[in-house]
Simulated assay, not measured.
Amino acid sequence: MKPQRTGRGRAARDVLVVLFDEVQSLDVTGPVEVFTGATHAAGTPGYRVRTASLDGTLVRTSSGLTLVPDGALADGPAPHTLLVPGGHGTRSSDPRLTDAVRDIAPRAQRLVSVCTGALLLAEAGLLDGRRATTHWMFCEKLARDHPEVRVDADRIYVRDGHVATSAGVTAGIDLALALVEEDLGRDIALTVARHLVVFLRRPGNQAQFSAQLAAQTAQRAPLREVQQWITEHPASDLSVEALAERARLSPRHFARAFHAETGTTPGRYVERVRLEHARRLLEDTADGVEEVSRCCGYGTPEAMRRAFVKHLGTGPSEYRRRFRTTR
């Protein structure tokens, strides 16, 4: 089959999405909506999306939805992009599915996985010697079961040559938008992002989860209120003594209770919230480093620089520069 041409004379990119029982439906529909939306926004057939299961039969997603594939994996032209979504089905996949993905991969110009789809790519030997990521809950499994894969657990997506892997669910949308920007330009990607009401600003090196998601939510109302206070007032006095007073507990009792219910110490939680807030200001504003450090409770630019180097391996100014070059 000859590749379809766009109005500008460019070939439409065939995207083949692999379907299987117990697939995560959002891992499928998120990228599919991005690619089809980009085609509509461009006014040309920029992408031609095809879904396929092993035998072309219906699949049941992990949420119970039934998806109807366009055909079987063995049929159809070689894809430009082979996309493997995640879901429970990747953890106990049919060996025939692994073989099918392994067979198709050499004929694809780009390999993409969403969430635990990386496990299937790794099982097929397609991530050997490459950097990759997956849902944070399965990064350890990926590294343990496939030591030849260099797992980067703190990225929402990772590009290594023609292979791109992403973290859970919404990270697949971020990666798909990044691919659209690469293929069709930033204006098209931005149009799709606006239509889907998502941000076109998360680069692949952004952490998978925020301080609030990384820590557990406290069960007791006073401790939950303190967590919220920390998030909303990073520049305030967030010492254990000040936070304990807000929770109406002694400092020792507060520190023990906070750790027991959130899984982290008050100091580490404050540190992560301040770092996260500083990163957002550096990404979204033109405020200087000194002003950002003051707004985030660091006190001095040097204190903020030490925090950035400790957790991110780079200073605030360099972090801002890298962020803007990856947008």
Results as ranks from 00 to 15, higher is better:
Pro3His: 09
Phe20Lys: 00
Asp21Tyr: 04
Glu22Trp: 12
Asp27Gln: 01
Asp27Leu: 00
Val32Gln: 03
Glu33Arg: 09
Val34Arg: 03
Gly37His: 05
Thr39Ile: 08
Ala42Phe: 11
Ala42Gly: 15
Ala42Lys: 07
Thr44Gly: 08
Pro45Val: 09
Leu54Thr: 04
Asp55Lys: 12
Thr57Asp: 15
Val59Lys: 00
Gly64Met: 07
Thr66Lys: 03
Asp70Ser: 11
Leu73Val: 11
Asp75Pro: 03
Pro77Arg: 06
Thr81Cys: 06
Leu83Tyr: 07
Arg91Lys: 15
Asp94Thr: 11
Arg96Met: 02
Ala100Lys: 01
Val101His: 01
Arg102Met: 01
Ile104Leu: 15
Ala105Arg: 12
Arg110Ala: 04
Leu111Pro: 06
Val112Ala: 05
Val114Phe: 06
Cys115Asn: 09
Leu127Gly: 02
Asp128Met: 07
Arg130Glu: 05
Thr134Arg: 08
Met137Ser: 14
Lys141Thr: 14
Lys141Pro: 04
Arg144Met: 08
Glu148Lys: 12
Asp154Ile: 04
Tyr157Thr: 00
Arg159Gly: 04
His162Met: 12
Ser166Pro: 10
Ala167Leu: 04
Ala167Cys: 12
Gly168Thr: 06
Gly168Trp: 04
Val169Asn: 01
Thr170Tyr: 03
Ala171Val: 02
Asp174Ser: 11
Ala178Val: 02
Val180Arg: 04
Val180Ser: 06
Asp183Ser: 12
Leu184His: 04
Ile188Cys: 13
Ala189Ile: 10
Leu190Trp: 14
Ala193His: 06
Leu196Ala: 07
Leu200Gln: 11
Arg201Ala: 15
Thr217Glu: 14
Gln219Leu: 13
Gln228Ile: 13
Trp229His: 15
Ile230Gly: 04
Glu232Thr: 13
Ala235Arg: 10
Leu238Gly: 03
Leu238Ser: 09
Val240Leu: 03
Val240Pro: 07
Glu241Trp: 00
Leu243Asp: 01
Ser250Gln: 14
Ala255Glu: 13
Arg256His: 14
Glu261Gln: 15
Thr262Cys: 13
Thr262Phe: 09
Thr262Asn: 05
Gly263Leu: 05
Thr265Gly: 12
Gly267Tyr: 06
Val273Tyr: 06
Glu276His: 10
Arg280Met: 09
Leu282Thr: 04
Leu282Ser: 00
Gly297Ala: 09
Gly297Tyr: 04
Gly297Lys: 00
Pro301Asn: 03
Glu302Trp: 09
Ala303Thr: 11
Arg305Tyr: 03
Ala307His: 05
Phe308Trp: 08
Leu312Thr: 03
Pro316Thr: 10
Arg320Val: 11
Thr326Phe: 12
